[in-house]
């Protein structure tokens, strides 16, 4: 029995050592060039948001500015499927203001004609989620040079690098470097952006000039400002419960530290007459 198990062990070890040898030979004999994507790729910029850190929460004025950027720039191509207009009250809007924003949103909610039953649209209500710019994936693909604009509801959670990545990408469009190999140069309909994984993405620079959006609160709409505001807005859309999470967290952990401290003292008390 034991001999058989020893032999099985020897068998696995032999194969693995053999595989290692084969791999090592190949590794040593082949050349290792850094891939072009790796060489030109940039790490997300160092940027901070009010929601960062253990005490972070949202800056409502910034979220309102971000909503405006989203509405005037992003919403033409990107959906925001998970978010309902009613939750805009989180941004400091009243219920009536949220209702107005929903009703005046540039895209209407799909509906049916109540008389004929044919497909139609109607102004959105607070209970509706943000309507998508395209009725389905095929339409989105057709309208965007075969690239589907992703839903932005969770984008800051759904990308490695999170919010700083989104921010970096928005302002990361650069002229194509002279030393970029031909195979990695953007073809028609693609744009060079070293923050994107394969360096070329189908989205043209969304933020092109300062003042592209006119802020209601008088903040100067520089490119980094707009990118930062809309990214902050997208942090909110990805996790509107973030402030509640952090506040609850503090209360829970402080309570647990107190309880555990008492628990430790009680534990020492119980053991006081026992050697261990």
């Amino acid at each position: 029995m034991k001999i058989i198990l020893n032999l099985i062990g020897a068998f696995f070890v032999a194969i693995l050592v053999w595989s290692f040898g084969a791999g090592a030979v190949e590794y040593l004999t082949s050349s290792h060039e850094e891939s072009v994507e790796h060489k030109f790729h940039e790490e997300p910029l160092d940027v901070s948001f009010p929601s960062d850190g253990a005490l972070g929460t949202f800056d409502k004025a910034q979220l309102q500015r971000g909503l405006k950027v989203f509405r005037e720039v992003c919403a033409a191509c990107h959906s925001l499927n998970q978010v309902a207009f009613r939750s805009l009250t989180d941004l400091g809007y009243s219920e009536d203001q949220a209702k107005t924003i929903a009703a005046e949103w540039p895209i209407e909610t799909p509906s049916i004609n109540p008389e004929t039953g044919e497909a139609a649209t109607r102004p959105s209500l607070p209970i509706d989620h943000f309507p998508a710019p395209y009725p389905n994936v095929v339409a989105a693909r057709a309208a965007n040079n075969n690239a589907v604009p992703p839903d932005l509801s969770l984008i800051t959670k759904a990308r490695e690098g999170g919010a700083p990545y989104v921010y970096s990408l928005l302002i990361g469009y650069r002229p194509v470097p002279a030393d970029l190999p031909e195979a990695n140069r953007p073809s028609t309909g693609l744009y060079y952006n070293p923050w994107f994984a394969n360096l070329n993405l189908a989205m043209p620079a969304p933020l092109t000039s300062a003042g592209q959006v006119t802020y209601d609160d008088g903040t100067e709409a520089s490119l980094p400002q707009m990118a930062k505001d809309v990214t902050a807005f997208l942090i909110w859309t990805a996790e509107p419960t973030l402030p509640a999470r952090k506040q609850t967290g503090w209360a829970v952990i402080l309570f647990l530290i107190l309880a555990t401290g008492l628990g430790y003292m009680a534990y020492r008390n119980v053991w006081i007459d026992q050697k261990h």
């Binding site: 253990a54 952990i253 647990l256």
Partner: peptide
Amino acid sequence: PYYTAKDGFGLGVFLILFSFMVFF
């Protein structure tokens, strides 16, 4: 009560670490 007390303390430490991950 010896190991219930010790496990109670251990549970507290566990919950602190767990809560830290869940909330932060």
